[in-house]
Design a protein around this nucleic acid. Structure first.
Length: 450
RNA sequence: UCCGGAAUAGCUCAGCUGGUUAGAGCAUCUGACUGUUAAUCAGAGGGUCGCAGGUUCAAGCCCUGCUUCCGGAGCCA
């Protein structure tokens, strides 16, 4: 227990110290006075407690100190813990002494409303607010749930490299850097290929780390640097993988509901909706989804050569965009897996459906309540000739993929995996409007500070 | 890259049809108050109207260019 080694008390443990005198260290979250009575809301990272300074009970000096405190000043406060119904949290501190670490002046973030740009410029300070504090705790719990889930189910954590020699999927734009005398290196956009190799050593593996996409995306669900967990399983079919994805997401959501109820309440999240996230989820094949879109008259905006837009029925073979996914999810209050997409619109490494070669054994999981796509995965092509042909078709450099083809030369087996976007998952669970709130220091096209 | 929007006090915004000295709330400072929760009340300070140019007797407002930011599309987690 860390508290045994410290000379001060943590705010979240105050209920255990009723009636005792304690010393707290923290920052002034808010302060307000009423003549001979002064209130200080103190936060220390573990919680917030209201400290009451009553003039007749303290020295003149201590009362003046209390009145001089400003937002985000750092202080040490000593006082008695008292149960108090009127106080949020149920306990309050009757202050006997205050020592100032530093008196802050002109803290930029006031208790009033602020704009996004201003808050983002002050992200390093914004993290102190209750809302951001709650989201970061939820994020930490999601990460722990992911690790616990895989560790408990026979997976080995095998980290994949961040500096890579070439594109994994050959599609999106990569961040580029010089790598000594070996030419260009790129920041990884996916650990999948390495996970596949690792799965041939360990059976079930997952990689979990930062991922980079240099796409000039400007939406509230994109970051240029984000965290992704990618499990990869030998001998798993697409069906096995969809089951696993459902298990994982159910486990994550229920862990957050169980361990972060307080934080979800702080955010005003409708927790009943999260409690309903239980298996089985919904499943639709791509073809069923297209049929549904057309039956419900969800049109596709298509740009004409002359620049004008027309609305057409959704054609089989086109990939879904955000508008289609959103329309599709309106009917569901649980996640939905869409599977078996046209192979044309999917990555080269995905295995074709043996029953219908136009289809790839791919799947995406869409979250309800506008959560969008949180998972993308597939069964991988395990046949040497088919994979090699696919690499050539996509005009990818064969030499760079020789090691990857080795996996199909030496003991190739059916295998599958998927990637789950950490920030998108946190965004959905926390109900955040924008993905930038779900990572401590977001990296976006026009933002690399702080 | 494409489409759309925004920029006025430390922050959030208002500013009419172009017309006298630039407006509010919050924050800050001074004072009053024994239960505040974004306290209330009285008072004070605080402005290169994003930048550059143009039109006009007159520009925060109109025009052109630039900068910065925001949302969306595409790409995807």
């Amino acid at each position: 227990m860390i508290s045994a080694y410290t000379s001060f008390q943590r705010i979240d443990r105050l209920p255990d110290a009723l009636g005792k005198e304690v010393t707290l260290n923290g920052w002034v979250y808010d302060t307000t006075g009423k003549g001979k009575l002064h209130f200080i809301k103190l936060r220390d990272g573990s919680g917030i407690v209201q400290c009451v300074v009553f003039k007749p009970n303290v020295s003149e000096e201590v009362f003046d100190t209390a009145r001089s405190l400003t937002q985000e000043s750092s202080v040490q406060i000593t006082g008695t813990v008292r149960a108090e119904e009127r106080a949020p949290g149920g306990v309050e501190i009757d202050v006997t002494n205050i020592t100032i670490w530093q008196l802050t002046s002109n803290y930029p973030i006031t208790p009033k409303e602020h704009g996004d740009a201003f808050l983002m410029e002050n992200r390093h300070l914004w993290l102190r607010s209750t809302r951001q504090h709650a989201i970061m705790r939820i994020r930490a719990t999601v990460v722990k749930a992911i690790r616990d889930f895989f560790d408990a189910n026979g997976f080995t954590l095998i980290d994949s490299p961040i500096l890579t020699p070439a594109a994994c999927e050959g599609t999106s734009t990569l961040f580029e850097t010089e790598y000594f005398d070996l030419g260009k290196a790129y920041l990884s956009q996916s650990g999948q290929l390495y996970a596949e190799a690792s799965a041939m050593a360990h059976g079930r593996v997952y990689t979990f780390g930062p991922t980079f996409r240099a796409e000039k995306s400007k939406t509230r669900r994109h970051l240029t640097e984000f965290w992704m967990v990618e499990p990869e399983m030998a001998f798993f079919t697409l069906e096995d993988t969809m089951d696993l994805a459902e298990d994982l997401v159910e486990y994550i959501v229920q862990s957050v509901v169980r361990h972060r109820y307080q934080e979800l309440s702080t955010l005003g999240r409708d927790i009943a909706k999260l409690e309903k996230i239980q298996r089985p989820f919904h499943r639709l094949s791509y073809s069923e989804a297209v049929e549904w879109l057309n039956k419900n008259n969800i049109k596709l905006n298509k740009k004409q050569p002359d620049g004008t837009e027309i609305q057409i029925d959704f054609p089989w073979g086109e990939d879904f965009g955000a508008p289609q996914e959103e329309a599709l999810m309106q009917q569901f209050d649980k996640p939905c897996i869409v599977h078996r997409y046209p192979a044309e619109v999917k990555a080269f490494y995905m295995k074709r459906d043996p029953h219908s070669p136009k289809l790839a054994l791919a799947m995406d999981m869409l979250a309800p309540e506008g959560g969008g796509e949180i998972i993308g995965g597939s069964q991988r092509e395990d046949d040497f000739d088919a994979l090699k042909a696919r690499i050539l078709e996509h005009h990818l450099p064969l030499e760079a993929f020789e090691w990857y083809l080795d996996l199909r030369r030496y003991g190739s087996v059916p295998h599958s995996g998927f990637g789950l976007g950490l920030e998108r998952t946190v965004k959905w669970i926390s109900g955040a409007e924008h993905i930038r709130e779900t990572i401590p220091y977001p990296r976006m096209i026009y933002r690399i500070q702080p």
